[in-house]
């Protein structure tokens, strides 16, 4: 069974690590993970949970680490993959909105 991201975030925080939490707050069309799904990230890029089943996690981790540094929350939107534009996105054709916030 996969680990629980909210518990992982609490455990990491209690160990003195920097932690950010990403949460799916809205979806349009076919989205890989439902609203309310979490991904916990630490400063070293360790991850527990998922917000997209792998499509946008790389970009979310990057923003999560930025959030740990500046202490600000972010609202990210991802749409369909655009290979020409080299942008990350969702191959399934859906759109998702993700809240990224520092913990602590």
């Amino acid at each position: 069974m996969s680990e629980d991201p909210l518990r992982a975030a609490e455990t990491w925080k209690s160990q003195g690590r920097k932690v950010a939490l990403a949460t799916v707050v809205a979806t349009w069309g076919s989205a890989p993970r439902p609203v309310g799904s979490h991904l916990a990230v630490d400063a070293d890029g360790n991850m527990v949970g998922s917000v997209s089943g792998g499509c946008v996690e790389g970009a979310v981790v990057h923003e999560a680490q930025a959030a740990m540094e500046d202490g600000k929350t972010r609202l990210l939107k991802f749409g369909v993959t655009n290979e020409q534009a080299w942008a990350v996105g969702l191959a399934c054709g859906g759109k998702i909105e993700i809240l990224v916030e520092p913990v602590g």
Binding site: L6, R7, A9, E10, K13, L21, T23, V25, T73, L75, L99, E101, V103, G104
Partner: peptide, 25 residues
């Protein structure tokens, strides 16, 4: 989210107490 809020949320989930987490975006 504050660490205390996260800890309380996890405690609620562990004791199966229902709760709504509201976050100002």
């Amino acid at each position: 989210m504050k660490a205390e809020t996260l800890a309380r949320l996890n405690a609620d989930r562990a004791t199966k107490r229902g709760v709504v987490l509201a976050t100002d975006l």
